[in-house]
Design a protein around this nucleic acid. Sequence first.
DNA 1: GCGATTCTAATACACTCGTATTACATTTGA
DNA 2: TCAAATGTAATACGAGTGTATTAGAATCGC
Lengths: 202, 202
Amino acid sequence: MSPRSTPEERREHIARAVWAVMSERGLSAVSVRSVAAEAQVSVGSLQHIFPTRADLLIYSAELMIDRVVRRIAAEDRGGDPIDATLRLFAHLLPLTPESRVEMDVNVALIAESRALPRLEAIRDEAHRALAEACQRAVERVAPHLPPAVVERRAARLHALTDGIALHLLHAPPGGDQRWALDLLRQELEDLADGDGPAGRRP
Amino acid sequence: MSPRSTPEERREHIARAVWAVMSERGLSAVSVRSVAAEAQVSVGSLQHIFPTRADLLIYSAELMIDRVVRRIAAEDRGGDPIDATLRLFAHLLPLTPESRVEMDVNVALIAESRALPRLEAIRDEAHRALAEACQRAVERVAPHLPPAVVERRAARLHALTDGIALHLLHAPPGGDQRWALDLLRQELEDLADGDGPAGRRP
DNA sequence: GCGATTCTAATACACTCGTATTACATTTGA
DNA sequence: TCAAATGTAATACGAGTGTATTAGAATCGC
């Protein structure tokens, strides 16, 4: 780590190392030593920043969720509602190497939440944030829908999004990924048309 | 392990212990010793059956996928297409304690596939099996659709299913789960009606 | 029945793990 | 400037890891 860095920067640097190990070598390769090596930091330094392994994992998860939540909040909502919403979801999905790493971390988070229950709470926050984003998206795209239907369509959009994310992670990084956004666009256009499962045409 | 058991039964018994540890204590709690203890078997016996840890994890994953694939194949397809399809998906989703364990294993499988690439191949098989099941479901429920549309709607049903599965896993086991099948039923009914994103009404 | 095979079990070995301790360097603030 | 606070590093310790070795028990086929 370069000198003159703030404590926050150092913590973030370590967290990134955690993500890298998780993503490249799997969850069980994440150890205090492997992360220290990845971050090019001595075990002692890492311990000074994160006294225990749990602290390390929890902060890494928190930072990752924070980034996602912040991105949701910051996204420009101007222009056509469907385009704006698609823009938002586009960088929630693992479409780039970086967001693939995020998704890897997300999955590891689920897989380890039995051992570190605190991780479950962190995941909850991300889940709620995405659920709210879906709700707002539905309201924006289909303002005519009654609240009960909005709720149902939001749940559906949420599930569809997470499912697509999972499938993107499953597919090799280089392949065709247009289907992912196409699927979402279809769903949003149906919402706008009042078509589909919720509000039928008279 | 009770005596008079076949080798297959013994392997299955051990695999179940792996699932239990994974599900209750997280992926990183799965070790040769913890599994041996859970299965009430000595480490030596376990080693005789699974020489390495990788063998242990791989077989456990394979068996779990096998069960799912077999269940897909065996499901009764009689009666109303929508009901039959829902019956099928109902025991692919983590709606019961047992299928929750399966889903836990599935997630752990993803989280560890970087360390054990063989696991990726196993997961591929499950992915393909579910993809085909979705394709057949769409064809059965909406026989009028052209092949290109079937493909798209199958991908959508597949993503929706996996997303719902993830959300069911996220929610506490005791809570309301009707929304899950309701969402799927809605999707299938839209398919049957020719409504929704694919075939619009004229 | 009995030899061959399969299974069980105990123990050992070399690592790696998380964490504590200790001493040393660096930066910071008055 | 110079103590105090903070960051870095090396090392040690016990526990847990995967796996190999070894010996003995149980089972099976003939």
